[in-house]
């Protein structure tokens, strides 16, 4: 039964989702929404399991002083500090977002109530102005000096006043995320450039006819994408040769290849989903 019940749930859930895709019935929309909501709820519970597993693995490592257990101490410290600070101060997604006037008024009202009841106001409002130079419907942000200059000339410009909040938990957010998390993430992402160079070096060695073709097309695409390519082209009298060739390779060969893979992959996805739906593929369900 351990396998039959998940199979039945899979079958009926998939049937509802498929029906919702083609049948216009409000009850199916509601059922689909409920299914999506329940997925989020299950994922939240699973998150606790994940964190418990993480803590269990690393605490065990520290306790038994296994190889590289020092890294586990750093991990557990980061885990506990972030967790404690997060629980104490929470995460405020709106802290840096500009508020509309309506939100500002609502917040002002809330603060008045807090004041009357003798409680401390939690919001520090930061009022700032943005200046735009308006061309057709596009807006370009300009400094106040340019804005004043354009306004004096009679050019269409707009001023917008924004209200943002500087909340108490900003310190936590700034410390952990802006000063530690973001730079670390940027570091990892920037490593990609070096890895890309080493991978390209290996891939572009002209060892066979196909590899030579790859090298040649990569050279043409690269020359078409960098300013120096256009400059070299104009020096030898072929102004748009590199950009045009690069576009041709990307639009024709590259797009054709990508679409072929995508069509095949989509068919594979449908077939795989169908196999799971009818209970033919059950490996992911684990134990009997």
């Amino acid at each position: 039964m351990k396998r039959e019940i998940p199979l039945m749930i899979t079958f009926f859930t998939c049937a509802i989702l498929l029906l919702q895709f083609i049948v216009d019935l409000p009850i199916l929309d509601r059922m689909t929404n409920s299914i999506n909501d329940s997925t989020s709820i299950v994922a939240t519970f699973a998150m606790v399991l994940g964190l418990a597993s993480l803590a269990n693995v690393h605490l065990n490592k520290i306790y038994k002083k296994r190889r590289d257990w020092g890294y586990s101490i750093i991990l557990m410290l980061g885990f506990v500090i972030t967790l404690v600070l997060g629980c104490l101060h929470g995460v405020d997604k709106e802290y840096s977002e500009a508020l509309t006037k309506v939100q500002y008024e609502a917040m002002a009202l809330e603060n008045q109530t807090l004041k009357k009841s003798g409680e401390k106001e939690i919001h520090n409002l930061v009022v700032k102005s943005n200046y735009y130079f308006v061309r057709n419907t596009d807006k370009v942000v300009v400094t106040k000096d340019i804005f004043d200059h354009l306004k004096a000339q009679g050019t269409p410009v707009e001023e917008e006043t924004l209200y943002s909040v500087d909340r108490e938990n900003r310190l936590f957010y700034t410390l952990i995320f802006e000063n530690i998390y973001d730079p670390l993430q940027a570091t990892m992402f920037s490593l990609l450039a070096f890895f890309m160079a080493s991978a390209a070096f290996r891939a572009f060695r002209a060892k066979s006819f196909e590899a030579t073709l790859l090298l040649l097309s990569a050279f043409l695409v690269m020359m078409g994408r960098v300013p120096i390519g256009e400059m070299i082209g104009s020096m030898i009298g072929l102004n748009a040769f590199f950009p045009d060739t690069s576009d041709f390779i990307m639009k024709v060969f590259n797009t054709a290849g990508q679409r072929a893979i995508m069509i095949g992959a989509t068919l594979g996805m449908v077939a795989s989903s169908f196999r799971m739906w009818i209970g033919l593929e059950t490996e992911h369900l684990g134990r009997d």
Partner: peptide, 22 residues
């Protein structure tokens, strides 16, 4: 599709698109 070239350049064997599902 955007990640397949990276795998092709760095790995010994690559399952392309539908092969993964097969």
């Amino acid at each position: 599709t955007s990640q397949l070239p990276f795998f092709v350049a760095s790995c010994d064997y690559v399952l392309i698109g539908e092969e993964l599902f097969a």
